[in-house]
Amino acid sequence: MNDKTFLAELDAQSRVKQEEFFDHIASRLQRPRQKTAPIRTLKGAPEDWDRYELSLEARITQFVKHWELAGGHAHRLAAMKDAVLLIQDMVRHTGAKHLIMQDQPELEPIQTALLRTKEELQREEQQDINLTIWNAHGLDDAAKGWLVAAAAQADIGITAAHAAVSYTGSVVLPSSEISGRTVSLLPTMLIVIIPVLRLKTRLGEVLRPMDEWPLAERPAGIHFVSGPSRSADIENDLTIGVHGPGIVHALLIEEA
């Protein structure tokens, strides 16, 4: 049996079983099957909460505070060019050899600069940098596998945030062909670029519009990241970087 027929068989069985399953639920609830949307009087967070909205400056301050409390590093930067300088500096200082970054348009200046840094360092014979750009467009399975392998050995991963939430200190990272999930997961260090206009106050401001996203445009993975990977499983002693990146930098870009 090939994979397709196997899955088709499983799906056919599932569709038979599901009627029995749903009917059983309805019968336990002592009513016929509910086929139309039930009326909801309450939805989402309490109404008062929706009025909680901070000014841009307050959002930035709150994000920085919460991100740092969770163990992350935050940098307020006036413009993208400052981010470029900071990242170049980080690469030089950490001696990072393998870098991976998304092919998102907003990261273009960083991409260009890092390629320049790579050449410079090569000329200085100091560091041999391997920079991978995540763009899966037109790649076959094997080439896609190489992207994941590059992420797995990367010292630094760089991504731009779709949004950020100051109240929870989170960055929001949806997946796409130019935005790999492993880029924010497998490297030892993660750098997230956040144009501050994408910074919201509440989680709901990010989640609520997502309910309306058309099916075809919904990314397979949307990751909300709120600091470095951590665990307290050994005697309640906090350890950082258990599976995901242990060092996370949020770069807040304040230019419009």
Partner: peptide, 15 residues
């Protein structure tokens, strides 16, 4: 630290 909203397997274009 992580809240992941996962909607189906990778898209055709995803790596």
């Amino acid at each position: 630290v992580y809240m992941s909203v996962l909607s189906g397997p990778r898209r055709a274009a995803d790596a």
